[in-house]
Design a binder for these strands. Structure first.
Lengths: 221, 221
DNA sequence: TCAATTGCGTTGCATGTGCAACAGGAGGTG
DNA sequence: CACCTCCTGTTGCACATGCAACGCAATTGA
């Protein structure tokens, strides 16, 4: 585990822990575990008690489609966390399967060790709990933002909402986005070519200018 | 506050607290507050530190649309909670306005009093924290389920997903839904008449039978 | 240098569905 | 009974957009 300290100490989960990291991990009975390519970390249907943090490689959160196809809900890469909501909400049967495509190394923590103050009542525990709550609440807000975008009726409205949030983030009407077109389309739950088309229209109408991933918003939107 | 104990003691927030409720509320420095019709509880832009629990009446979570129209995101009625994600994630500026249409009475709790163990380290505090985490994590799962439905491309697929989850909940291929058509349409983010139309098609195709709010699923979906 | 791959834009077509308008039934009220 | 309101279903139309196919430019790799 020690060789991953450089990752672990930077995690939101352990913010404010500092030099006590080793003790805290011991107190939490945290363990690392390796998985081979295509191995399953959490099977759909079983009770998930553990929060997992990816230390190396990546994992996929997947689900069975109605036709039995496996669809990928999310990819969690290094420093990412999975299973926290399921474990903290105490669900009995996981609705998702977590699998690693190319193998991975993860840190596993029983949530009960986090949310139950230990006998030693180590002073860092309170900090851990704050962090945990912060993480889940933030995720909550992210999901809300996603729903905000999803519930826009037209692609134009989704784009405007996206542009507004980017302008806010960058505090400028010019910004570079980190998405490729395909990725942006996925994020907006739209079709790539439809996205291209809509961007063209908006350029024609003098609402935006863009070149590759640089965008400039010309009107108040 | 005492006259609302019958509501408060049943809240998820205070599950497992039992007879210590009064002390716990004191320890949390919880207060009740009344609002007149159309009064604002949380203004967009201010920092929300409080979790609110509706004891009487109801509140609306609203947002300014790009055209300046006020759109309603959610309605919180008696025993409902608002502001927990914003407060726990420590956001600086509330993206939403909370307003009460007809007046209300709410219980306000500073989240810092919840997530920071009090000096007396009252033994119930650990339970409170567990409850808080449980609530936020559960909300998280609800949001995920909503996104699951939202990301279905067609109304047919949304309906199938809804029916599957209802069959699972009721453990039967016959069930009564609690939504009126208009409400179901809202839940699925679809148009009411389009929903009616799709249901008709599905009946024609022999996939479902229904009468009013009773549904029967005839095929493996 | 040639071939393959990736990213992006364009376009024609099919279709899902939002919208508006209307109809009919159930239930409530004067 | 007459009238109103609420809930649901039906239908014609318009339109947004998913999809597939193609072209082009830039990049990568053999």
């Amino acid at each position: 585990m020690e060789k991953y300290f450089y990752i672990i100490e930077k995690l939101d989960m352990f913010k404010g822990i500092g030099d006590d990291l080793e003790n805290v991990l011991k107190c939490l009975k945290a363990v690392t575990k390796s998985y081979r390519p295509d191995e399953i970390l959490v099977s759909a249907g079983v009770k998930p008690n553990f929060v997992g943090i990816v230390l190396k490689g990546s994992v996929l959160i997947t689900k069975e489609d109605m036709d039995g196809n496996r669809i990928i809900i999310a990819e969690i890469s290094e420093s990412g966390m999975y299973g926290e909501a399921l474990a903290c909400a105490g669900v009995k049967f996981s609705p998702v399967t977590v699998i690693t495509p190319n193998g991975c190394e993860v840190l596993l923590i029983d949530v009960n060790h986090i949310i139950t103050t230990c006998n030693l009542s180590c002073k860092m525990h309170s900090q851990l709990i704050k962090n945990m709550i912060y993480i889940i609440a933030s995720k909550n807000l992210l999901l809300n933002r996603r729903i905000d975008i999803l519930t826009q009726k037209t692609l134009r409205e989704k784009l405007l909402m996206f542009f507004r949030s980017e302008m806010e983030r960058n505090n400028s009407n010019m910004f570079k986005i980190n998405f490729k077109r395909e990725e942006l389309a996925d994020y907006l739950f739209a079709n790539r070519s439809a996205l291209s088309r809509e961007l063209s229209y908006m350029r024609e109408e003098g609402i935006i200018e863009y070149d590759k991933n640089m965008f400039k918003i010309l009107k108040n939107i």
